[in-house]
Structure formats: structure tokens, C-alpha cells
Design a protein around this nucleic acid. Structure first.
Lengths: 105, 105
DNA sequence: GCATGATATGTCACATATGACATAATTTCA
DNA sequence: TGAAATTATGTCATATGTGACATATCATGC
């Protein structure tokens, strides 16, 4: 596992300390986390591509800047539902979603 | 829209009465619903393929028979998170998930 | 018919996710 | 530098999702 990814996961609140701890995750758990990471990265990319700030996006989807930030950080408190809804609101197609998920794992 | 699909949506609690009502859904909303339908069908297929009853699956993933039924009916009360977690627990690969989603919309 | 198993539906207490707010940290640019 | 804009982090009341339970409906075999 790359240090950058580990750091990202730790920041996201996944309580990953050591390699052994990480190995303690089941395949489902890591696949689920990887999926969230892929979606959060897609969200940030989409937003930047549109030249929107987090505040602007928040207004657009009737959320808040802090929640956008948490989404993009793949925070443990955000659901896949919210990520998907946000991506769809940004005009992401189901196929694009699928691609993002496919490159997961 | 095919009658069968409409009926399924109505049963799932999406409050769709007429064609006009359905047209009232935004593209995001219908894409979101389509995605849930795709995941719920995948779940049922996976479960049947493994010869499991809803009760058996419920025990497997520490849920309840009624929630499995609601998942498979794409009930409005179930989250994509739960569908995804359940599919992953059944051994569905991220690629399979992606395929299911891609054929959506 | 009527058991028996499986699936569906309705409800509810409890758990988790959410937007909102405050505030801190970071970036950008003059 | 430092002010302004942007993004990150922490917390909380409320909204939404969850497992569990009861019960209904449906299917299959006797």
C-alpha cells in the first residue's frame, strides 16, 4: 500500500495504524473504502473541472461547504448515497460512475 | 417506460402515479433510482445463485429478512451503502458492481 | 383443504448521516 | 507581509437508515 493512500485513509478517520491493522480489514471492507475513495476523487475532479468552489457546489446541491470537504476527503461520516447523488447532480453519467468504480480494487 | 418497471417503482414507494409525475423526476433522480434498481436486482441474482434464502442471507450479513426483502424491492428506505456492502459480502467484485451500474440509464 | 417454508409489508426504538455553524488551516495574490 | 478566498476540522440538533419484530401474502407439496 502506498504511503499517500494510507495517509489519506488515516485522515479520513479509518483508524489505520499499521500494516497489520490494515490487513485486518476484510476484503469487503477494503473494497468498500476503495469505492468511496474513487467516488470522492471523481467528485473533486468534476468540481474543479467546472471551476466551482466548495461553497458554490454546496449551494448547487443544497449542502454545506464542510460536507463537501468531507465528501472529498472520503470522511467516514459520508455515505456513498451522498457521493453518488452529488456526482449525478454534477452531470456525471452512470457510465462514468461505473468507470470510476471499476478502476477500484 | 415499461409497465413492469413502473409497477416495481411504485411498489418500492417512489410515489409515481402517472407518466407526468414520472417526467417530473429530474435526470439525477431517475438515474439514482435506476442505480438502486440495478443493485437490488444484482443482489437477488447473487443470492439465488448461491441458493440462499433471505433468512440465510440476513444471518450472513447480520441483517434481517425484512431488510433483505426491502433491499431486493429497492425500497425507498434502503441506502446504496447497504446494497453495496451486501453485494460485496456476497463476493461481488468491484468490476461486477461497475457493470451493473453501467447498464443503468 | 392445510401445513410449511419463503418472501413481503408495516411499524418502531435506536443508530448513523446530514446540514449548519464556528473556527482553524491553507492557498492565492498583490 | 498580510488580507481575502478557499478548504479542512470539530461539534451538534435533526433527519434518515437500520435491525428487529409482528404479521400478511405467496408458493409448494401433501
Amino acid at each position: 500500500m502506498k504511503p499517500a493512500k494510507r495517509k489519506k485513509l488515516e485522515k479520513a478517520g479509518w483508524k489505520i495504524g499499521t500494516a497489520d491493522d490494515f490487513l485486518g480489514l476484510t476484503a469487503e471492507e477494503s473494497a468498500y473504502i476503495a469505492m468511496k475513495l474513487a467516488l470522492s476523487e471523481s467528485l473533486r475532479n468534476k468540481r474543479l473541472k467546472k471551476g466551482l468552489s466548495q461553497v458554490a457546489l454546496a449551494k448547487l446541491i443544497e449542502s454545506s461547504q464542510s460536507r463537501i470537504a468531507k465528501m472529498e476527503a472520503a470522511d467516514a461520516s459520508v455515505s456513498i448515497d451522498l457521493l453518488v447523488k452529488s456526482l449525478l447532480a454534477l452531470g456525471t453519467s452512470p457510465k462514468e460512475l461505473a468507470t470510476a468504480i471499476a478502476t477500484t480494487g
